[in-house]
Design a protein around this nucleic acid. Structure first.
Lengths: 347, 347
DNA sequence: TTGTAGGCGTTATCAG
DNA sequence: CTGATAACGCCTACAA
């Protein structure tokens, strides 16, 4: 076999070839394609036939150039590990599609970084762009924000840059308070690096706030990344310190899950010996025993909102410079709350 | 507050404004931007300064039009639920970025369908396009495959359309045989709808093949979708039938997980009463107890390979019309194999 | 209702 | 080494 593929791509029909085939001017072809001005039924049919026959599709770039619009939105995300970013992307893509806009996606490297060059290139091909917080330098953000609609998602408040995010501080305080007040924990430790991402920072702030309000001293957070492996690392470190805690507030579910597992391997039970909480409410959080207490965010809605706001701005409409979506603490077994049996089931 | 955002976007510098500011012709500006022909150091500096000052970035569409290349690849995927598609996307995006190509993404609806219009629009703005199997009608695929590089991923073999996929049939046979031969199961049932997606169909084929080779009759599969909720539905149906089975081979991990949970709720233990297997090896598969026996695919590599092949084709190189990547059966507790303790840990 | 022609921002050829 | 000047494919007044 191996009829290796490399078909001498047929040159692709243009508005000219269609016009010629239909015996009309390119203006007329354009009209029927756009459905803009009135065209006599007869000519319309001729044109349509030609289009069909030649399998004509307007060249996107040429159109963009002419209408002075890319008709596309850009989105910059970190690696798509958890379901969080996927959800965000889905919400974004769906909303964009509804508005007839394409989505140009750029993913950051492992170190949650996108080069300014790549960012600039991306921005050069879209009408508006959304960037997850902490991936692109503020400087670059501000610069392109001056030339086209730009939104930071789940990022830090930055002067001159609009922002959309889910609530973090308050929910984190609530979660921590729950551990302290309802489950009698007294030495909670935050697992995650506040400097790694704006939202982690906010979660840490909320955590500290809850402790301070109760006169409890907040120790240093265990500074680790956001992936499973980091959860293991965190536990090793904690173990080395003699595990000086009775509750672990983790920056996300991946870490929390790995932490729980590693803890179990070391003979420590959750929630009896230690309470553990996560963030994001990923699928595994519901299937694991005990269920993982975590915080659920309206991620998909956030993504959709971002796209719609961008679209509005592109259309010249004014929008609020920022918005914060509400989240919800989901109490399951890992914090010490009673499990509602095995009916975790799908949401 | 509420300094509502709607900055009167500055017109954006063009090659003309830069040329004027630098006191040179646009040709020269283009040269320094492209780094193509030789330019005297002095003029280069002048131009660079102007570019810097005006914050100039070439207009992507204009460039595309001129170079007759979109410098972008398109990707069509279903909804991004599990980690499978995210991984695929990451591999694809990373490889594309390495080749300096943008990624245009289109996601199908809930019913795993993308309108031909949207598909065509997407295709109109890229140099090459990859489509997950079963989302776009073959007819449409063949049509655009005639005009530009097109690859079907994890789809069915279709004449005239190149294809890249992970192996399904053989792994499924191996998995099923394992249940039969090593764990003495005798009435396995397939959970999933072979008609829903090409790869599900192949997994079913492999399943049936294993049974037939042993003279066991393969009953009707439990035809359900690929999401968690579908797993629950499947169990309800099975229960209604008196649960006439001792092993459930599920089309993917989401289903398998939900199935296990629902089974437990009904008082049936896995793997003692029933063995359960999945497909994909998602994260939750490792954290659940018993661990989920499943099949791991080199998804990320698949995504990368797709992008690279597309790039090759765009560059006029010939490539094999198809390729099948190897997969691996991962035996954990849910099939009856002994669990290796609690060291599931990150991969 | 239909055609002509100018413009969108770059690239690239061809003279100087 | 640099500058005119055609494309590139499409849209859209403006005319007819």
């Amino acid at each position: 076999m191996v009829a290796s593929s490399a078909a001498p791509v047929p040159a692709g029909a243009t508005i000219y070839s269609v016009a010629e085939a239909a015996g009309v001017s390119i203006a007329t072809v354009s009209r029927v394609v756009q459905g803009s001005a009135a065209v006599s039924e007869r000519t319309r049919d001729k044109v349509l036939a030609a289009i069909q026959h030649l399998d004509y599709t307007p060249h996107a770039a040429a159109r963009s150039l002419a209408v002075r619009q890319h008709e596309a939105l850009g989105l910059v995300l970190p690696e798509l590990d958890g379901p969080y970013f996927s959800e965000l992307l889905m919400g974004f893509e769906e909303a964009a599609a509804e508005d007839g806009l394409s989505v140009l996606l750029s993913l950051a490297d492992h170190d949650r970084t996108l080069s300014v060059e790549r960012f600039t290139r991306l921005a050069a091909g879209v009408d508006g762009i959304a960037v997850l917080g902490g991936i692109v330098p503020d400087e670059a953000l501000r610069r392109t924000a001056r030339t086209k609609p730009l939104l930071v998602v789940a990022g830090a408040q930055t002067p001159g840059v609009d922002r959309l995010t889910a609530e973090n501080v308050t929910s984190s305080t609530e979660l921590t308070a729950h551990l302290l007040d309802d489950h009698g924990r007294s030495r909670p430790v935050f697992v995650g690096d506040p400097d790694i991402a704006p939202d982690v920072r906010e979660r840490h702030v909320g955590f500290v706030r809850a402790l301070e309000a109760r006169g409890v001293e907040a120790g240093e957070p265990v500074r680790v990344g956001l992936r499973e492996a980091d959860g293991v690392v965190a536990v090793e470190r904690l173990l080395a310190d003699g595990l000086p805690t009775d509750a672990l507030v983790c920056a996300n579910d991946e870490i929390a899950l790995a932490v729980t597992d590693r803890l179990a391997a070391a003979g420590h039970r959750v929630p009896d010996d230690l309470a553990v909480t996560g963030w994001d409410d990923i699928m595994a959080a519901r299937y694991v025993r005990p269920g993982l207490t975590t915080v659920q965010q309206p991620v998909r809605e956030l993504g959709a909102l971002v796209a719609r706001r961008l679209h509005a701005r592109v259309s010249g409409l004014a929008t609020e410079p920022s918005a914060v979506l509400a989240t919800r603490v989901v109490r399951r077994g890992s914090c010490g709350c009673p499990e509602p049996g095995r009916d975790a089931g799908p949401r």
